[in-house]
């Protein structure tokens, strides 16, 4: 076991990690931040996406020790300071961009990374960006709509409003 420290959602934290301890295990089991989920073991589904030094990564495919000292943000750190939902989170609720909620943290983290780099993405760009986040419930319709809405674009003309 090695002591690993990092900043998570603005707080400096530390915990024990084996070499094989994945970042997602460090977050979920070490820190009790269970909002980050594990949906596969081949780095495909994206339920575990978090931000490391501002970039989205799959926390199931990164060793905790490899990101020692990093600035990590998880779904638990995405709401506004007063606890209210961020614009992106609110758009997911407003447009029914989630059902069972399991892929949702990864979706939000992934979409947030997109909007940081590309504040007004097209539908095609949103869909392409989300190719590493699998959702089995929504058929993606309302997720894509929520991301477009969060970017300030008019989604009222999208089918089945």
């Amino acid at each position: 076991m090695t002591k690993v420290s990092m900043t998570v959602n603005g707080r400096t934290v530390s915990g024990e990690a084996e070499g094989r301890t994945l970042l997602v295990q460090f977050l979920r089991e070490g820190l009790g931040l269970t909002g980050t989920h594990v949906g596969c073991d081949t780095s495909q589904c994206g339920a575990c996406v978090v931000h490391v030094n501002g970039q989205m990564v799959k926390s199931c495919t990164v060793f905790a020790q490899d990101v020692a000292g990093a600035d990590v943000r998880t779904i638990e750190g995405m709401a506004n300071a007063d606890g209210s939902l961020s614009v992106l989170q609110q758009a997911f609720q407003d447009h029914h961009g989630l059902q069972c909620g399991y892929c949702t943290p990864g979706m939000v983290m992934s979409a947030a990374a997109l909007l940081k780099d590309n504040p007004k993405p097209t539908e095609v760009e949103v869909r392409h960006h989300l190719e590493g986040n699998i959702c089995r419930c929504t058929g993606y319709h309302n997720i894509v709509k929520a991301v477009l809405a969060a970017s300030g674009q008019d989604v009222s003309k999208i089918a089945a409003e």
């Binding site: 931040l33 269970t34 909002g35 980050t36 998880t74 779904i75 638990e76 995405m78 709401a79 939902l85 989170q89 997911f92 609720q93 989630l98 909620g101 399991y102 949702t104 943290p105 939000v108």
Partner: peptide, 10 residues
């Protein structure tokens, strides 16, 4: 339901 899922509190 959404608020808990969107904030990692599910």
């Amino acid at each position: 339901e959404d608020v808990r899922f969107l904030t990692g509190k599910g």
